[in-house]
């Protein structure tokens, strides 16, 4: 009985602020709202609209491209950084603080910072490129480069996080694994690819799950830097849904969009969770 009392505040809070609002969103998704604030039951009209909405499919495409690009960059760099950290044997607290600093920084601040560095005319990044004899880029102001640029910013912020997770995995591997490989005379890279990497897969998939949840809902850095622009080149589903809801106050359609996005995130997590079971050892 006391157990119930101990968990009651959390359960009531979850019911009021999470469970009920979720059910309410489902209800909102079946309704339309007039500008006078009246609501009308419209059945699946919002979902029918979504299927034929070009902006939705564009948003889905942008979301997926940004997701795949960012995740790939963060995993490759993160694993590489983890190996370097692991080989360093002892990691000083300052080094760890340094690795933590990008992802503990508010994403909004990261956006502000990179906005100044990547300014097309006065930014330090273009100056660096030009002094290396490379052509300057419009970065966030270019419809072609805005998504890769955002992926780079997010990678700067989160590759160290992936690195620290993978480092934890490396440190928990039994040392006998490496000894056996050394006796066989396997080269460093071969050992890594044939033995270490497969053993690390559960940790890597965990990192993928944690990053997927954030990347599929990408919002902060985009909203502070481009608000979905230039044009609609970085209009991810989350940005699009937010604008439909709070710029055009079409709460019903925004609810349908966000429920769809939540289903996509949930599906990705379920799929990756199956992958984690498949690579477990």
């Amino acid at each position: 009985m006391e157990i119930v009392a101990l968990s009651a505040p959390a359960v009531l809070f979850t019911a009021g602020m999470i469970a009920f609002p979720l059910v309410y969103t489902v209800w909102l998704g079946f309704h339309s709202f007039t500008s006078a604030g009246e609501q009308r039951f419209t059945g699946v009209a919002n979902y029918a609209r979504l299927v034929s909405d070009w902006e939705f499919w564009h948003g889905l495409w942008v979301t997926l491209v940004l997701y795949v690009l960012s995740l790939a960059l963060q995993l490759v760099l993160g694993i590489w950084l983890a190996v370097i950290l692991f080989n360093a044997k002892r990691i000083h607290g300052i080094v760890r603080s340094l690795f933590i600093s990008p992802f503990m920084m508010p994403p909004v601040v990261a956006g502000m910072m990179w906005l100044v560095i990547l300014d097309p005319s006065l930014g330090a990044a273009n100056y660096l490129l030009q002094s290396l004899g490379l052509p300057p880029s419009d970065w966030l102001a270019s419809p072609t480069w805005v998504i890769p640029t955002i992926a780079l910013i997010d990678t700067w912020q989160w590759a160290p996080y992936v690195a620290l997770i993978v480092l934890g995995g490396l440190q928990s591997l039994p040392p006998s694994v490496y000894e056996a490989a050394q006796i066989d005379g396997a080269s460093g890279f071969r050992t890594f690819r044939r033995i270490t990497l497969p053993l690390l897969m559960p940790t890597i998939v965990t990192a993928m799950i944690l990053r997927s949840v954030d990347l599929l809902r990408f919002f902060d850095i985009i909203y502070i830097t481009t608000q979905g622009g230039p044009g609609n080149a970085s209009n991810t589903l989350n940005i699009y849904g937010f604008r439909v809801g709070f710029e055009f106050f079409n709460i019903g359609y925004a609810s349908a969009l966000m429920l769809t996005l939540a289903a996509i995130v949930f599906g990705a997590v379920l799929a990756l969770n199956r992958l984690r079971h498949a690579v477990a050892w």
């Binding site: 969103t25 909102l28 809902r217 925004a254 966000m258 429920l259 995130v265």
Partner: peptide, 9 residues
């Protein structure tokens, strides 16, 4: 869940 999903209700 995406934050907007909660923000709407």
């Amino acid at each position: 869940a995406p934050g907007t999903l909660f923000l709407l209700p």
